[in-house]
Computed example of a mutant assay.
Amino acid sequence: MSIVTEIAAAPPASALAHFTSLLAFETDCWDVHHALTSGQHDFVLLDVRGPAQFEAGHIAGAIHLPHGKIIASKLAQFPAGTVFVTYCAGPHCNGATRAAIRLARLGRPVKIMAGGITGWIDEGFALDSRMSAEEGPA
């Protein structure tokens, strides 16, 4: 018996519930890229990093809204059921989680983009440095 199988795998029904639950809370860079480039963009992508990081490069179409500035008035332009996807620097950063907490407290549906900008770059996807999306919601 290996260390892998020393503890038995969960029954398939439990595994299905667990892994489905994970995807209710997060998505990944490839899925976000696919949605953005295939016309299935049915969410608001929030870059929750600081201004300097956003200016250095962000995902095209992302709205810049640092996690500390997520308040109800900044979200008022979006219908109540709008899904938000947050991202920050990467796995070493908890900004996307902090943003998700703020959004959830405001009653907004939210997912985190696992991997953040680091994952996006690792997938080979381009960054945008144009400032058209800079300030996001008023």
Rank of each mutant, 00 (worst) to 15 (best):
G95F: 00
P51I: 09
I59Y: 02
G116A: 09
V110I: 08
G119R: 12
V48R: 03
G68M: 12
S2E: 14
E135M: 12
G95H: 02
H64M: 12
G68R: 08
M113H: 10
Q77A: 15
G116H: 06
A62H: 10
A80S: 14
T97I: 01
Q77F: 05
A80V: 15
G107E: 02
Q53S: 12
T86R: 01
I59S: 04
S129W: 03
I117P: 00
H18Q: 04
L16V: 03
I7M: 05
G61I: 06
G136R: 10
P51H: 02
F43N: 02
F125S: 09
L75Q: 11
P51Q: 06
D128M: 04
A99S: 00
H92I: 04
K69E: 15
M113S: 09
A80I: 12
A9K: 08
P91W: 00
I112C: 04
T118N: 13
A8K: 14
L46T: 03
K111E: 04
C88Q: 03
T20P: 00
S2H: 13
G116R: 07
R130P: 01
K74S: 14
G116K: 08
Y87G: 00
L16F: 06
G61W: 05
P91T: 07
L127W: 09
F84R: 02
A89K: 01
G124N: 04
W120Q: 11
A89T: 02
A24N: 11
H92D: 04
A56C: 01
E6L: 15
S73R: 11
V4W: 13
S129V: 10
V44C: 02
K111G: 01
H34S: 14
S2R: 09
S129C: 09
T5V: 06
H58K: 03
G57Y: 05
L45F: 06
V83T: 11
T86C: 07
V32K: 03
E6K: 15
A72Q: 14
T27M: 01
S14E: 15
D28K: 03
A72S: 15
Q40C: 09
F78M: 10
A133Q: 12
S14C: 03
E134C: 10
D28G: 08
W30D: 15
E26L: 06
G124D: 14
D31R: 08
P66A: 08
F25Q: 01
M131L: 15
E134V: 12
M113G: 05
R105A: 05
H64W: 13
E26D: 01
R105C: 11
C93Y: 00
H18C: 01
G119H: 09
A17V: 05
A8D: 13
A35H: 13
E6W: 13
A15R: 06
A9S: 14
V44P: 03
R130C: 10
A60L: 02
T82E: 10
M113I: 05
S2K: 11
E55I: 12
A17M: 11
M131Y: 00
L65V: 05
T82W: 09
A60G: 01
G95T: 00
A89V: 10
I70Y: 03
P51R: 11
S73P: 08
A52N: 10
L16A: 07
E55V: 08
A52L: 13
S132L: 11
P137D: 07
T37V: 13
H67T: 05
L16E: 08
A56D: 09
V44T: 08
L46R: 05
R105M: 09
G107H: 04
M1I: 01
S2I: 13
G95Y: 01
A17D: 11
A17H: 08
